[in-house]
Write a protein that binds this DNA or RNA. Structure first.
Length: 267
DNA sequence: ATGGTAGTCGCACTA
């Protein structure tokens, strides 16, 4: 069986950047594209562009102006589910199943605001509660879901070399110890394998996001690895390759995130 | 310690 290719990309408005999505699909042709921050209600999602690009199977969880996730696929789904996390009603999650039983979860974890203190910043509190719910979710299903993939914008850069300066970012939301430790708990709860770090040594800097607020994002290169692809241990032997499409951050009117791509033999 | 950019919605909020 040909390798399955799955991409994840925080697009920061799918309506504004549908042209970039089309370019990405034409150039990379993944089987499945998971989007975050589509920033639109489902009725205004640019379905036709994706159908015409060869992705007729669409799962969309949208809301007006904020958040929102979608999965566009060449292969049909047998199931589409949306979980409500933290009882907030936010569109931050989608789960699809494929015909061979493979499960795919797409997450947009809360960014968490600026102040890394849950007592004074409700957005950071929400982020921590979201991560704790993910721990419980992983523990509850780890024994029955053996062929599963989880992707998305996790808004956490877990490892020292997932940020441009470990020391300087220890107090910056996305890399604080409470977040990185919680994300490690999420990962351990389901024995998730970090597919990207399976290929790129932990000692090597790797980012998927660069702030808009830099005069020259590429020269400064003050990035963070916020976007992730994890697989269950049963899929580990099928991992073929991953890549982070840094060049897409330099496309005209780009998202601040680059796409992350996984190829695997999903057996 | 600050401010820098971007998108959506509408003159504020989120990232």
């Amino acid at each position: 069986m040909a390798p399955l290719t799955i991409a994840t990309w925080n697009i920061n408005s799918v309506r504004l950047r549908i042209g970039l999505v089309e370019r990405f699909l034409a150039e990379q042709a993944p089987d499945v594209l998971c989007l975050q921050e589509i920033k639109t209600i489902e009725d205004a999602f640019p379905r036709n562009a994706l159908i015409e690009a060869g992705y007729p199977h669409l799962a969309i969880a949208g809301q007006k102006g904020y958040h929102g996730v979608a999965i566009a696929s060449k292969r049909p789904f047998t199931r589409i589910e949306k979980d409500d996390w933290c009882e907030m009603g936010d569109a931050r999650h989608l789960r699809v199943a494929f015909e061979d039983g493979l499960l795919l979860d797409n997450f947009y974890i809360p960014a968490g605001g600026d102040v890394p203190d849950p007592m004074v910043n409700p957005k950071f509190d929400h982020k921590l509660r979201f991560l704790r719910e993910m721990v419980a979710w992983g523990e509850a299903r780890r024994t029955r879901e053996t062929r599963a993939i989880v992707v998305g914008d996790f808004n956490v850069a877990p490892l020292e070399h997932d940020v441009w300066s470990h020391k300087k970012l220890l107090d910056v939301v996305s890399h604080t110890p409470v977040e990185t430790e919680l994300l490690a708990e999420v990962q351990a709860a389901h024995d998730w394998v970090d597919a990207v770090r399976h290929f790129v040594p932990e000692t090597e800097k790797l980012y998927s996001w660069w702030s808009y607020r830099a005069a020259d994002w590429s020269a400064a290169d003050k990035g963070r690895r916020l976007d992730h692809i994890w697989v269950t241990p049963a899929l580990k032997d099928g991992l073929v390759a991953t890549r982070t499409l840094r060049e897409a951050r330099g496309w005209p009117q780009p998202s601040d995130h680059a796409p992350v791509i996984l190829e695997l033999d999903a057996g």
